[in-house]
Simulated scan of single mutants.
Amino acid sequence: MTAVAESVDTASIGRLLQQRHDEAAEQVRRLQDQTESMRGSHDAGAGDAADVGTLALEAAEQAMVTMALQEQMTRLQAALKRLDDGTLGVCQRCSTQIPVTRLQVMPWATHCVPCQSIVDRYR
């Protein structure tokens, strides 16, 4: 099947992918800055045990969000690579065209909706 280039403006999809990647990278940077700030306040003697526990919980939550954002960045980078090599928009399971509307919502999609349902079922 043909790649997304024949049915979608690849430049706009590329801009969308890059924009979402840049936004995720900025969020990761801000979270890392917040984590460093929290560590600094902890090192400065941030109070009682409850304060220390709260800081630890917040740091753990930020770490989880950071991991999710880094995973999203990886998916976006892979999608940009598929855009460059002309395979973005082709289902990796059945080789059919991924609907444009799906790519507009989830530009990193690697499967059409029916195949994604199958893939999700076996995870």
Rank of each mutant, 00 (worst) to 15 (best):
Q70R: 15
I98P: 00
C91Q: 00
G45P: 06
A44V: 01
D22C: 06
D120C: 03
T66M: 07
D33L: 08
S37E: 15
I118R: 11
R30F: 06
D120L: 05
L69K: 14
Q62P: 00
A56I: 10
G86D: 10
L83E: 06
A25I: 05
S12N: 07
G86L: 07
S41Y: 09
V105P: 01
G89K: 08
G86Y: 09
A3S: 14
C115R: 00
L103Q: 05
L80M: 14
T110A: 03
Q62S: 15
G14C: 07
L55Y: 06
E6P: 08
A78C: 05
Q116F: 02
E26V: 09
R30M: 03
L17Y: 07
L16R: 13
Q32A: 08
Q19S: 14
T35H: 11
I13M: 09
P114R: 03
C91V: 03
A5T: 07
Q92K: 10
D120V: 06
M64P: 00
G89I: 10
A44Q: 06
L76Y: 09
E6C: 07
H111N: 10
V52L: 15
S12M: 11
E36S: 11
E71K: 15
T35K: 11
V105L: 12
Q34I: 06
E61L: 12
V4A: 03
V119P: 01
V105W: 04
I13Y: 05
A44S: 06
L57D: 13
A79I: 03
A78H: 13
R93Y: 01
R82G: 00
V8Q: 04
R93C: 00
D22T: 14
A56P: 04
A46S: 14
E58R: 10
D84I: 02
G40C: 07
R75M: 10
A25K: 15
A50S: 12
I13N: 01
T54H: 11
L103K: 01
A5Y: 08
R93F: 02
D9C: 07
L57H: 13
Q19C: 08
P107S: 11
A60Y: 08
P99T: 01
V8N: 01
R123F: 07
T101C: 06
Q32T: 09
V4Y: 00
D48H: 08
P114G: 00
A50H: 13
E61Q: 14
S95T: 14
Q18M: 06
M67P: 04
P114E: 02
R82H: 03
G45R: 08
R20K: 15
R30D: 04
Q18W: 05
T54Q: 13
S95R: 11
C115N: 01
V8I: 14
R82V: 00
S41C: 01
D22S: 15
Q27Y: 07
Q62F: 08
Q32G: 06
T110L: 00
G47K: 04
V4H: 00
Y122C: 05
E23G: 04
L55H: 09
H42N: 08
G89P: 12
Q104L: 11
T96K: 08
A79E: 04
I118T: 15
